[in-house]
Structures are given as C-alpha cells and as structure tokens.
Computed example of a mutant assay.
Amino acid sequence: MKVGLYFGTFNPIHVGHLAIANHLVENSDLDQLWMVVTPLSPFKKKSSLLANHHRLEMVYKATENYDKIKPSDIEFKLPEPNYTVHTLAHLEEKYPKYEFSLIMGEDNLKGFHKWKNYESILENYHIYVYPRISEGVIEHRFKDHPKITRVNAPIMEISSTMIRNSIKEGKNIRPLLDSQVWQYIDEMNFYKK
C-alpha cells in the first residue's frame, strides 16, 4: 500500500489542508494519505501550539468523512523534537509492507536542505510537492530531482496563523474550516486570546 505522509502542526487544520490532501490522494498513485500531527516542529515555538490531543481531535473531526485520509498521532510516541527522518524509520519498522512518501508545500521544499539527514530522505522516499503562490518555482537544487514530483494541486493560500489571528480579532472564518472543527474551536474558546 502506498501512503502519503502530510506532516503538520494543524493548529488548526483548515480547508486548505483538506483540499490538498484530497487532491493528492485522488490524483496520484497514493492509496491513503495520513495527516501526521506533529507535537513539536524543530522550526516552531511550542508556546503557540494547542495541546496535542486538541489538534489531533480537530484532524479526526475534519477527516472522518474521507475514506482515504487518516489522522495519525505516530509522532506523539517519539522523542521530541520530531525529525522526519526518525519518524520515517519508525514507520518503516512498524509497517514494513507499506511504501511511504512525503507531501510538502514548495515553502517547505525551499528549506528542505536544512532538514536532518535530508539526503537520506531523498534517497529513500518519494516527495510530492504542492504549489504555493508566494514561493514561485521549486528551489533550483531540487528542480529535476527524480524523487520529487511537483503536483498540480489547487493553490491554497490559507494559513493556520491567519485563521488564529482572525479568530483573535473576532472575525468570522467559518468558511475556512470544516464545520465540526469550527464548532470544536468555538466551544473550546480556542485562539481567542
């Protein structure tokens, strides 16, 4: 089985994440796409994150009507900070019959050469890259790499930061969130302070 891994803090998960995930799983050779909720990215400050279980719950709520998209808490059980190369090794051990690929935006690919053991990841895994208007073309060093596939997915310039800021400012951002995710955020009073 071919599984795409879409890593993110999902703080919160929004319709942009879902549109990209659904497009990839429906328009590629992937059988499933796992939305891997990252407890702590080496590039993000933990203080701005909701608790792990809340972000995982939002991913569950957002994906429950998608047969091919699954939430994953695999990184919750691994040492922090989470490095993709360690997570991939853990997944290979746990699911030896699965073939894993990475999903990332052009913005992440731009800094991919800074990732821990990025050469090993590129050697062993396929990467699907979705477009971001703000990033332009793929970084030259990865332009024609055989393991990197640029996907003609919808361009979604929605960010979790923008959603959090809008909620804090009292703006209605319901169209940008799955209805169950919006309800959960509203009931829990998340992002209002």
Rank of each mutant, 00 (worst) to 15 (best):
G170K: 09
S120I: 09
V3M: 05
E80L: 15
P81T: 04
E57I: 00
H23A: 06
D107N: 12
M58A: 09
A19Q: 13
H86T: 12
V85R: 02
G8S: 11
H14S: 09
E119C: 01
L50S: 14
P81D: 12
D31F: 02
R174K: 15
I121T: 04
K44C: 03
D178C: 02
K110T: 12
D144L: 03
L40T: 01
Y130R: 05
G170H: 05
V59A: 09
Y191C: 06
V129T: 08
W34H: 12
Y98S: 13
D29I: 03
E106C: 11
N11D: 15
G111N: 14
E92D: 15
F7W: 09
Y66D: 08
R164C: 09
L56S: 04
S48Q: 12
K97R: 09
E75M: 03
D144W: 01
L56P: 01
V129F: 07
Y98Q: 13
E119H: 12
F10G: 10
L78G: 07
L50G: 00
N22V: 01
V181R: 05
V129D: 04
T87N: 09
S160V: 03
R164M: 08
S159P: 10
S166R: 13
S120L: 14
P175Y: 06
Y125I: 03
A21N: 02
K77G: 06
S160K: 04
L30W: 04
E135C: 14
S134W: 04
F7R: 02
E93L: 14
V15C: 12
V59E: 05
L18H: 02
G170D: 08
E26Y: 00
G8I: 11
R150G: 00
I133R: 11
S47F: 03
Y191Q: 10
V85P: 02
F112V: 08
Y128E: 03
M58R: 05
D107H: 05
L88A: 05
N22T: 09
K44A: 03
L5D: 10
